[in-house]
Write a protein that binds this DNA or RNA. Sequence first.
DNA 1: CATGAATGAGTCTTCATTCAT
DNA 2: TATGAATGAAGACTCATTCAT
Lengths: 214, 214, 214, 214
Amino acid sequence: MTASKNPRPRIKSRVGRPPSNDLINAPADQDRRGVILDAAIRRFAETGFDGTSMRDIAASTGILTGSLYYHFKSKEELFCAVHEESIRVISANVVAAIDPGANPWTRLEQAASAYLQNLADHSAFVSIVIGETHRRRPAPLGERLIQHRDSFEKHFTEIVESLPLVTDVDRNIWRLALLGMLAWTYVWFDPNARIPADEMGRRLVAMLREKTSA
Amino acid sequence: MTASKNPRPRIKSRVGRPPSNDLINAPADQDRRGVILDAAIRRFAETGFDGTSMRDIAASTGILTGSLYYHFKSKEELFCAVHEESIRVISANVVAAIDPGANPWTRLEQAASAYLQNLADHSAFVSIVIGETHRRRPAPLGERLIQHRDSFEKHFTEIVESLPLVTDVDRNIWRLALLGMLAWTYVWFDPNARIPADEMGRRLVAMLREKTSA
Amino acid sequence: MTASKNPRPRIKSRVGRPPSNDLINAPADQDRRGVILDAAIRRFAETGFDGTSMRDIAASTGILTGSLYYHFKSKEELFCAVHEESIRVISANVVAAIDPGANPWTRLEQAASAYLQNLADHSAFVSIVIGETHRRRPAPLGERLIQHRDSFEKHFTEIVESLPLVTDVDRNIWRLALLGMLAWTYVWFDPNARIPADEMGRRLVAMLREKTSA
Amino acid sequence: MTASKNPRPRIKSRVGRPPSNDLINAPADQDRRGVILDAAIRRFAETGFDGTSMRDIAASTGILTGSLYYHFKSKEELFCAVHEESIRVISANVVAAIDPGANPWTRLEQAASAYLQNLADHSAFVSIVIGETHRRRPAPLGERLIQHRDSFEKHFTEIVESLPLVTDVDRNIWRLALLGMLAWTYVWFDPNARIPADEMGRRLVAMLREKTSA
DNA sequence: CATGAATGAGTCTTCATTCAT
DNA sequence: TATGAATGAAGACTCATTCAT
């Protein structure tokens, strides 16, 4: 049976905020770190790392530029937190969509569908992750971004390992082919158009599963 | 039978000068524009659009910064030319690799292999094209980049149209799936490692053609 | 006979707190001020007044930056205390080395030797004093630093006054010449090399006492 | 015979300016590099390296801050040029004051007098050199400053080598003692007061030459 | 007394671009 | 056409200091 209409709740960002009893702290000010992170995610998603200035980010929070540095010691550090948070949200959504009891193909469809669903629900997170994948950042930052990505791809790796594939298929290449198909949807897929994200996810998985040649 | 060992010559950049009416432009002009374009391609590929300054480019040509503006009226204009040239070279390599007389599957394998071969031979061009695909640039520039990309994808579109696919396959999605797989190789494929570019191209095409599920 | 091997104990910093009426200030106050002063001495000595930030100082004590301002109302005030303490320690070492019963030339040798010995034992204090001597600080701070220095030079003034010098020597100039020789050792003298501090002190005094010309 | 009243012309800074035919170039604008260097010397002398901002320097020239960087690639580079120029002027004045035909003691008096005369004529240069001698700057800059100083002290080294001193005197220490006396005059000597620079120079040399003890 | 957070002016530096010569 | 110089806004980041809690 193929995955049903994504019945599980989708994860939203909590940008590292402690539970915060909203009853008492009405103005919801508090927690400037979270406010900054939120703003930074939006700005980085729109204009990228290089195209976004600390001033931009500060301006869209009301905080002064200098104050950002109390919470994040550099622009790179801030971006790294943004990237990690993006990966965290996307990963959580993917994981939440997987029914651990289902068979591997179903689980893969669920994962792929959830991946695409992020485009609709949290395109900022996807922008940040995909947008920076292709620009090699120098060492200290660059390596941390790669670690984040690995922690995400791991979920797919595990499923692909347990897939019943024909014996001469290289599972690494197979997985990377799928991830490429999925990542590229960022360039062309509109989840609000004719085909919804979950169906598109199943279709893409099906392409690698079945014979498409007549 | 799969495609043979890519026997056709690969295209190198002629740095996209317009046909150049040499009668009028006799004086030592010839090269300047080309020299700048060459340097710009290298720098933009290494450090991206935002990470590259006009000074960087000027410095690696011996030309003074101010002089750049005689040949290109802005940094965006220069980048646009660089992007167009990159697309032109990659397209030409793909086209040159296709045997027009071969059957569609073979032609597709030839195109995919040639695409990947660019990673080995002209990674700068690929860096520029892929690296900027995910960053939405504002209107005047952004739209021109999309046009360039379309002019490249066209070659794949034509082949995919003539492919004998099972009837319920959406050829648009099928093509975009393939292009995604290919584009993503930029992130993981090392053409100098175990598997050469042409074989990898055939393998990726095969994944979409055959049944991989056991 | 020249001064013997500096037998008197050398003074260490008690980080210049006022006598501290412990009856009133009972609570764990005792150390804080001293801890800050210690850290500040080290940092100012290493990186100078301008090169040291209040944050640097706070960081090397575990105290938070804001808390420094309870103990010292400004950076200048803190530096002033550091400078005063440095002068106090150096002065105390010089005074302790002088045998009040000895003749003036011996006393001068003892003082000079002790001065140089500070380079070996407490180079931080010397760094602070010498390093700031040549930078004219604006009025309120600047004048206090000069007062500190005067309180130190006084010890030499007294000895020089009682020296049996040839009648046409200007004792002021003579003293300043000696102090210049001594101060400048900060630039070139290594107390851990061939010649120890006490011998170097005697040699420098001897140069002004005897005829060095053949 | 001791040195006469410093008959040789004193060197002024030409801050690296090419001869510049002042007849044609009336507004004497031209040569912004020289203008910047002049202003920088003044500011650095007054407030030191750390206490002077590039804005300060730009403001006192009418040039915009950014423009400074066309002529000097960093603040350190600018300071280094300032320091080198200061050493150059002082050295030239010292050299110009020395009569190569005179005997060593006379030559030393001439050199010392000229050294002190700089305090009256070009105290900015002296401020820069002396003021930075006591602050250890990190490697790239620091080492260059030391080289500059060495190139100055060399003039004294040569004279001291040829001095007829009693045999057991260490000429290195002797020279450093003299240089210390001279450098320290920056702290106390007022060349416009009772004793003029040339006489003070001879007196200080005399102190190391003759027996001052009764 | 101590803290965490914020402030806002200030730091050096880089940039795309322009323009007289 | 090419150049050298200048521009001025913008970049990331630091700092001494303050203040409510």
